[in-house]
């Protein structure tokens, strides 16, 4: 068969290279539990005034709440003023937006088949104390979640990808690291009857 058609590359499980102290696993466990249950508390815990969040969705058959906030630069155009308006910066704005998004339920992180998580450290972030350079952690997550869309009042499922950039916190923060960047990519909704 391979000789007849081009074939997708092999697909391996999660590749976790987070520096040996399990920051990624610990963070993601808190993150997705709190994202489903208490988004304002999540924003206060891991986000600060400089954290950025935006979401990204393609064209959908049935427009959803997400469309109003999508910062998909392919569809809105990279010179559109929305590229600025839909970049949510700071924990307060992020929490306000999250409150308007549909309620979600993510699968448990104890089910490894439900998640692909790739992460690694990288150099040359700005040190939040203003001195020198800091290491960052890039985490990309692929999974799905159940959602209840307020417009449709029907449960559905979405595949998603979420890319986090973590870096050291400013002095006085609740955790030694913070979310610098959080980019959520959503795929088409699959309705459940």
């Amino acid at each position: 068969l391979k000789a007849w058609f081009p074939t997708p590359l092999p697909y391996l499980p999660s590749n976790l290279r987070d520096g040996g102290n399990n920051v990624a696993s610990t963070f993601l466990r808190s993150f997705f539990t709190m994202y489903d249950q208490d988004r304002p508390a999540l924003a206060r815990q891991f986000y600060d005034d400089e954290s950025a969040f935006s979401l990204n969705i393609g064209t959908e058959l049935n427009p959803s709440t997400y469309q109003n906030y999508s910062r998909n630069l392919e569809t809105i155009g990279f010179r559109n003023p929305s590229a600025h308006q839909r970049l949510f910066t700071g924990s307060n704005l992020i929490a306000e937006l999250w409150a308007r998004l549909p309620a979600t339920r993510h699968p448990s992180l104890d089910l490894p088949d439900e998640w692909q998580i790739d992460c690694h450290t990288f150099p040359s972030l700005a040190d939040p104390t203003g001195q020198g350079l800091a290491m960052g952690l890039a985490i990309t997550v692929y999974s799905r979640f159940e959602e209840m869309d307020p417009a449709q009042q029907l449960p559905g499922t979405r595949k998603f990808s979420r890319s986090f950039i973590l870096g050291p916190s400013k002095p006085g923060a609740p955790h030694p690291y913070r979310v610098i960047s959080d980019e959520l990519t959503l795929r088409d909704r699959i309705s459940q009857q």
Binding site: N72, L73, E74, L125, I165
Partner: peptide, 10 residues
């Protein structure tokens, strides 16, 4: 490509 997005991280 159906979508892309960008954040400045430093």
């Amino acid at each position: 490509v159906e979508g892309h997005n960008v954040h400045v991280i430093n």
